[in-house]
Design a protein around this nucleic acid. Structure first.
Lengths: 332, 332
DNA sequence: CTGAAAGCGCTTACAG
DNA sequence: CTGAAAGCGCTTACAG
């Protein structure tokens, strides 16, 4: 670690006490303008920056937030992080990253996170089961650390969250497909977890049931080489005229298989992705998508968390951001 | 922040001094097995976890590493983070994320990073100019914080780094294209920065010059809607029979434009990407790529950093991981 | 408005 | 092997 100038050095050089230096940094209005200027000058000359760790210990505030997620390398997680990081910077919070894999000892990981003394936590759930969510939320709330769910929501408990209404969005998309005359609408998802995919599925099933159509839920892998085989099999044995994929990569993987099997998209089969990642404009044809404003969800959730950490008045603690659909060439 | 059980609580319950509790956690071999067991039992019962901030202040070690990058949301950055995070977890280091945009006050950001008291820094450069790199490296080395460059290298200074030999890899790929008879080989990159793209370009130019061919370097945007226009224009005015893209997304964007303009890939034009991200298997045809082992680069660089932080003997401080080429359907 | 002093929760020589 | 004490670099009542 660096051997920096300390508050004592500044106090000495400015011929004031360290308490005054501290005040200049934290409550400048409480110190005489003249002394303030003098101290500020010395701070600048010495390039002084208070030791964040010492400050954290003394004030019991680390101005650090913990981001808890399952897998950093997923495209959606990375984009959420973009929004989070920009707002965190704006409000001068540092970011600590914690990955929490389900196969690990969840409790141990949680204790670790709590011991790191973050002022608030953003939970980006993608991989947890409902019971695990319960455990995680309880643990954090027991530790009295402000918590906001990012790109997720939780109906059983009173937990602040920022997301979009995945159920309503998927319901509407499915219904539109039904009304456009599609008869065999498939829904491709991954393994069952309690995350946004759960709500997407709910919306799809609701629309299908309302139209007295049997839901066709197909679970596959995020790994393209695996899903390709799955989709080949699927197309061989079933008539499909529309498919909605919970991830863009799944939708595109299906689309590629369909086209290579001789189908035309969108003439024979309509394909929709539920993310609108960068993948969506790199496919041929480009993918029609639910436009999930991932960056915004990250940004707004971080902003909400700053409010909790500052004990500000909060009017709405379950924020659903508006969503839209980007019509491209994979649907007609 | 959470009101946790402290070391005093443990000491009290175990009827020992806090020094002993501390020793049980940090130098267990120095304490009598019986007392050790007694203390361990209490620790477990109380679910005690030492306050990381207090520990950091007292020991001047935060067991935290800083990851400095330009943009979290880029696919390559996210995958590097995956490898970093896994190894960090293994060695019990926490991760603090710092974004450093060139337009910001670099010095201020650097001071901020130093003030956060990380034990080591991993620099993921993607967006800096060479002079900025200089500034950043100097600042961190002056602060005496161990530094490792991740997915980058720096020839002017003695800075530990983990990367692959981008120049050699691109040289070889270009040379192979030349030898297979391609006459008009283009290289598509983004704006000029001192990053891996710089070395890729070097390799391309070297191969072209050796063959007495004029390098055709085309700079475009990472934004597909922009690059699409660029590529349409390019194809209209130039004969191209091969293109190498520094990013997969750039290569795919070009490939899509080419195919929609009536060219056949790979029959008329060979296309190669220099990353091998997930995009590469979602394109049609799938993209031949330099296989950059991004996860491994992240993991190895983090491992190297742990060695520096622990003052271990280091045999090689400029590691070049092996690379390979994944031949897919976009080349013949 | 300013300073002296206590304290944040730990670690680490130093005695014993 | 164990404990008392100092100290890490700050903040924050409390006096004045």
């Amino acid at each position: 670690m660096a051997n920096n100038t300390t508050i004592y050095d500044v106090a000495g050089a400015a011929k004031v006490s360290l308490a005054t230096v501290s005040r200049v940094m934290n409550n400048p209005e409480k110190v005489n303008p003249e002394t303030r200027e003098k101290v500020l000058k010395v701070i600048k000359e010495l390039g002084y920056r208070p030791n964040a760790i010492a400050r954290g210990l003394a004030s019991r505030k680390t101005t650090t937030v913990g981001i808890v997620l399952a897998d950093v390398s997923r495209a959606a997680a990375a984009q959420l992080l973009g929004g989070i990081s920009d707002i965190a910077k704006k409000y001068d919070y540092a970011i600590k990253l914690f990955t929490m894999a389900p196969e690990e000892d969840l409790k141990e990981t949680l204790r670790k996170i709590v011991s790191e003394q973050v002022d608030g936590i953003l939970l980006l759930n993608e991989e947890l089961e409902k019971e695990e969510m319960d455990l995680v939320i309880n643990h954090i709330q027991d530790a009295q650390i402000p918590l906001v769910l990012c790109n997720a929501s939780y109906t059983d408990k009173d937990v602040p969250s920022v997301s979009i209404d995945y159920e309503a969005a998927t319901y509407k998309l499915t219904k539109d497909l039904i009304e456009s005359g599609k008869k065999n609408i498939y829904f491709a998802s991954t393994v069952h977890k309690y995350s946004s995919n759960f709500f997407k599925l709910q919306g799809y099933e609701k629309a299908m049931k309302e139209a007295n159509m049997e839901p066709n839920v197909f679970r596959t892998s995020g790994d393209v080489s695996i899903s390709t085989l799955h989709f080949k099999e699927l197309l061989k044995n079933h008539k499909i005229d529309a498919l909605i994929g919970v991830r863009d990569s799944i939708a595109i993987s299906f689309m590629n298989v369909a086209i290579e099997s001789g189908y035309k998209v969108p003439e024979d089969i309509s394909v929709i992705g539920l993310q609108n990642t960068k993948y969506a404009v790199l496919s041929r044809p480009q993918l029609t998508c639910l436009d999930t404003p991932v960056y915004d969800i990250g940004a707004v959730s971080m902003r909400l968390l700053t409010k909790y950490m500052a004990n500000e008045e909060i009017s709405d603690d379950n924020i659903l951001l508006p969503h839209s659909v980007v019509k491209r060439k994979s649907t007609n």
